[in-house]
């Protein structure tokens, strides 16, 4: 190891899985006989806040779990940028994971495997054995009873991440140069039926968190998850097959996030 104390800061959206990445790396380091320490740092919200993970790997005992400047900074969402930009200096390697979000989907992997792709990518920069990291990941997921198919996808995502690491310089932009998307400007998706009475469904991706309650509650199976469009948490939003819609308003009434509106013309 070049530095005697390698400081890694991971930052992402709550629920994106930065803590899992750090936990796996920390456990791997322990197995490999290195000194390591990891602390999570997040607020009261389980989702919707920025989640930080401070991880340190060293040959010597580590004094304190938090640090001021990271050697490697991994950012997984736009919102995290403001939170963590002060943790970097000119020497900090910045891995901007935001640019990789689509990669998992391009390879037909579940969006939930995104963090494991980042794990694969990050491992390439660490003094840890790839095989051991993968093994630790498997152990962790098996303990949690993750279905075999999803575990397999996570492994694939990990390998995909390793491959991407080779091309990393292209992605390792300076943080400031990453444009922050303004969620409030996302367009609302509107569909109107051609038959009478006219039914209009409006779905707002800036509010939709992909919980799927509307899809489950729809009496005519007119709703489904979008294959292309993602919402506020980067997960697929609901789409409507307007031909099947009867305008009952069930989806609107059960939506916890006020993301869907139904208008039905009076006949």
């Amino acid at each position: 190891m070049k530095e005697d104390n390698l400081k890694i800061l991971l930052a992402g959206e709550g629920g994106q899985g930065v803590q899992v990445i750090a936990e796996i790396l920390n456990n791997t380091a322990y197995k490999a006989g290195l000194e390591s320490i990891y602390i999570p740092n997040y607020g009261v919200e389980q989702r919707g806040g920025v989640s930080l993970a401070y991880l340190q790997l060293s040959k010597n005992p580590i004094a304190y779990p938090k640090f001021k400047i990271a050697d490697i900074l991994v950012v997984l969402c736009e919102r995290a940028i403001n939170r963590v930009k002060n943790y970097s200096n000119r020497k900090t390697k910045i891995i901007n994971g935001i640019g990789f979000v689509e990669k998992v989907e391009e390879h037909n992997l579940s969006p939930r495997t995104y963090n494991m792709m980042i794990l694969g990518l990050l491992t390439e920069f660490l003094p840890l054995d790839n095989g051991l990291v993968l093994k630790t990941m498997e152990e962790k997921f098996k303990k949690k009873n993750i279905p075999a198919e999803l575990l397999n996808q996570n492994k694939q995502a990990f390998l995909l991440g390793r491959g991407l690491a080779v091309r990393l310089p292209r992605y390792a932009k300076k943080l400031a140069s990453v444009p922050i998307k303004d969620h409030r400007k996302w367009p609302t998706f509107v569909k109107t039926s051609s038959d009478k009475p006219k039914i209009t469904i409006k779905i707002n991706p800036q509010y939709c968190k992909s919980c799927g309650i509307c899809i489950y509650k729809c009496p005519t199976n007119a709703l489904h998850f979008s294959e292309k469009i993602t919402g506020i948490y980067g997960a697929p939003i609901t789409e409507v097959d307007i031909k099947k819609c009867i305008g009952c308003g069930m989806c609107e009434s059960v939506c916890p996030d006020t993301a869907i509106e139904v208008e039905k013309e009076k006949s």
Binding site: R47, G49, Q206, K209, C211, A235, T258, E261
Partner: peptide, 22 residues
């Protein structure tokens, strides 16, 4: 429909996906 007494500038709210609180 979004209730009139919601502060729209603070949407989406911080509750998890599918939380009944919504």
């Amino acid at each position: 429909m979004i209730p009139k007494c919601y502060k729209k500038e603070n949407l989406p709210h911080k509750f998890c996906p599918g939380c009944g609180y919504g």
